[in-house]
Simulated assay, not measured.
Amino acid sequence: MGIIDKLNKDFESRVRLGIMSVLMVNDWIDFTEMKSLLNITDGNLASHSSALEKSGYIEVKKEFVGKKPKTSYRVTNIGRTAFISHFNSLEKLIKSK
């Protein structure tokens, strides 16, 4: 198995890479802040975060603050491990000759 085979297909999208990168350095982050940081549309964030949640990489919390819905995200332990492994494989690929 080559280095490239160790890359995680779930993180191939630039949006998913962005979501995971933001969550690796933040505890919880809300929908509006994530959308702003990544400069993406509501639909893009919703679909990619849903896919990451389905894979068990992130946790999504939906609640009401007053009468307004609030969606927040955080990385799971599984997600943290998978993303670190993906990142390490990328690093090996970059350093390979």
Rank of each mutant, 00 (worst) to 15 (best):
I4N: 09
D5F: 02
K6N: 03
K6A: 05
L7I: 00
L7M: 07
N8V: 02
K9L: 15
D10E: 15
D10K: 13
F11W: 05
F11H: 01
E12R: 14
E12Y: 15
V15R: 10
V15M: 09
R16E: 02
R16W: 03
L17A: 07
L17W: 09
I19L: 09
I19M: 07
I19Q: 03
M20I: 05
S21V: 05
V22M: 10
V22Q: 09
V22W: 03
V22C: 06
L23W: 00
L23R: 01
L23H: 06
M24W: 00
V25L: 13
N26A: 12
N26F: 06
N26Q: 09
D27Q: 15
D27I: 08
W28A: 05
W28L: 12
W28P: 03
W28K: 12
I29L: 08
D30F: 12
F31Y: 12
T32W: 11
T32N: 15
T32G: 10
E33W: 06
E33I: 08
E33G: 02
K35M: 14
K35Q: 14
S36I: 08
L37N: 04
L38N: 04
L38D: 04
L38F: 04
L38T: 03
N39F: 08
N39C: 05
D42L: 03
D42N: 11
G43V: 11
G43P: 02
G43S: 10
N44L: 13
L45I: 10
A46C: 07
A46F: 12
A46M: 12
S47I: 09
H48I: 01
S49F: 00
S50K: 13
A51E: 15
A51G: 10
L52H: 04
E53S: 13
K54Y: 11
I58P: 03
V60N: 01
K61P: 06
K61D: 15
K61I: 07
K62S: 11
E63S: 14
F64W: 12
V65E: 15
V65A: 15
G66W: 08
K67I: 10
K68S: 15
K68G: 08
K68H: 13
P69N: 08
K70T: 08
S72C: 01
Y73K: 03
R74P: 05
R74K: 15
R74H: 05
V75D: 05
V75T: 09
T76L: 06
T76D: 08
N77W: 07
N77T: 06
I78Y: 12
R80C: 11
R80S: 10
T81P: 01
A82H: 08
A82Y: 08
A82M: 07
I84A: 13
S85E: 11
S85K: 14
H86V: 04
F87Y: 12
F87K: 07
F87C: 04
N88T: 03
S89Q: 00
S89A: 08
L90T: 01
L90M: 07
K92H: 07
K92T: 03
L93Y: 03
K95A: 09
K95L: 12
S96I: 00
S96E: 13
